[in-house]
Design a protein around this nucleic acid. Structure first.
Lengths: 245, 245
DNA sequence: GCCTATTTGTTCGTATGTATC
DNA sequence: AGATACATACGAACAAATAGG
């Protein structure tokens, strides 16, 4: 038999069959071993592996060496409200989740053109660059890189290292309140480095947020880029109703 | 030589080498043919293919049957502002882009529990389900499914089919203005069906928006789920500064 | 701890199909 | 039509992780 008969590749048909079996509930947890599937579909084990790779890329199954291939349980996503008053730690606590921020790396850098524009300062201005990992319920959820004016917030690094919360750290530095000015969202595949830091599969998807927070006078406070694990996260924007007349 | 010496698979080292070559600019457009790469790295062509598949999954390269494998050019993203006043067509026009909405499918359905809650109606209420494709500059950008009250907007389907814009269609149905109540954002891998509809690679990423629009009295107007091609899109949320005292 | 069977992961070989130039 | 290049498929072998006795 020639490959790609009917114009549809064999492995696609195998993948479709397995996908259906998962969706209609005939496979719930573990898939049969590759050799069994190969026998059942009368194809080579490679063909089964190609099909399983496609299903894994869809996020439907997950293979574990030496153990087997399993249906991925869809976990409920963590809700993160984004708005004028965006507070990560507070949001987690409200959902009865235990957040903790870990300082990965901190350094003093000079503002490049992008940072200068976002923070409304001159290029070359001294900034604190704070790289952190947000862990919720013991599992990494996101990785952030923040930039602050080094002059205005000289002790922000230590304050964050101790509290694990940006809001708390800013309070210690004398800023009692701040608000979100802008949030820009995209999505990308995880890079090798991020996969390592977030302890996630190398084919995971990231929801990427680039935001600027400002103080109540409208001066930029921090520029923050966060990479969230997309399969654990749902960003919610609520537009508060204006009072009607 | 045994495979997987050093604990790192051969195909990973090949992929790393090729990725570096792309990043440092030694490969700019077309990659050498698989057979050449196999010879250069002294590995089997399968090993090269495994490496290229990984790079393709990262979105770095794209293989075209019969032509070759090419470095993916990173295109600038289309900006889509999301807020109380979210208008897709208007946003595109403002960026000097030509949007067009194509009606893919329309049907009358009964509200399920989810729709009933979002649209604040009783389950079973008659709704118009409108499936559409947004095309910008001739290229598919997103796929949406909207639900409207069939009683309140009896002619919404025809109105959309003619205008290609939800805002215009609602105007024809007597609703002069509406606002965004809530937007929920996640990201996922594209499904086979969506890849087909959006004419995108089967490993593309979708930015998924589930939103509810309401009229100026606060009554829900439509529930809309949109799947954007993540690599073409950037969602922007701006929090308008409250006037300071 | 050790050995063995099971199961997924990697690699090479070979052949053929299909699209492009 | 022929050459080139990617896509699919089967076969064989071994590596590496896991589980069970």
């Amino acid at each position: 038999m020639s490959p790609e008969t009917d114009g549809i590749a064999l492995w696609r048909r195998v993948a479709d069959d397995i996908r259906s079996a998962i969706h209609d509930g005939s496979i719930t947890q573990a898939l049969p071993p590759e050799t069994d599937l190969a026998a059942r579909f009368s194809v080579n084990r490679h063909t089964v592996r190609r099909a399983l790779a496609a299903l894994a890329a869809e996020g439907l199954v997950r293979a574990e060496r030496g153990r087997g291939t399993f249906v991925n349980a869809a976990k409920p996503r963590i809700v993160y409200p984004i708005g004028a008053r965006t507070r990560f730690s507070e949001s987690m606590v409200k959902q009865s989740l235990e957040p903790s921020g870990r300082l990965i790396r901190a350094e003093r850098v000079a503002a490049d053109a992008t940072m200068a524009e976002l923070l409304e300062c001159r290029p070359g201005t001294a900034l604190h660059r704070l790289e952190s990992l947000a862990v919720v319920e013991g599992v990494p959820l996101s990785r952030s890189v923040s930039h602050f004016s080094a002059e205005r917030f000289p002790g922000i690094i230590d304050a964050y290292a101790e509290t694990g919360s940006i809001t708390e750290a800013l309070k210690r530095e004398g800023l009692s309140d701040y608000r979100r000015r802008e949030t820009r969202l995209t999505a990308e595949r995880v890079s090798m480095k991020d996969a390592d830091l977030l302890s996630c599969p190398s084919d995971a998807i990231l929801l990427i947020s680039r935001a600027v927070d400002e103080d109540l006078q409208g001066r930029p406070v921090q520029a923050i880029r966060t990479k969230f694990l997309a399969d654990r996260m749902e960003l919610v924007l609520q537009n508060t109703s204006p009072t009607m007349g």
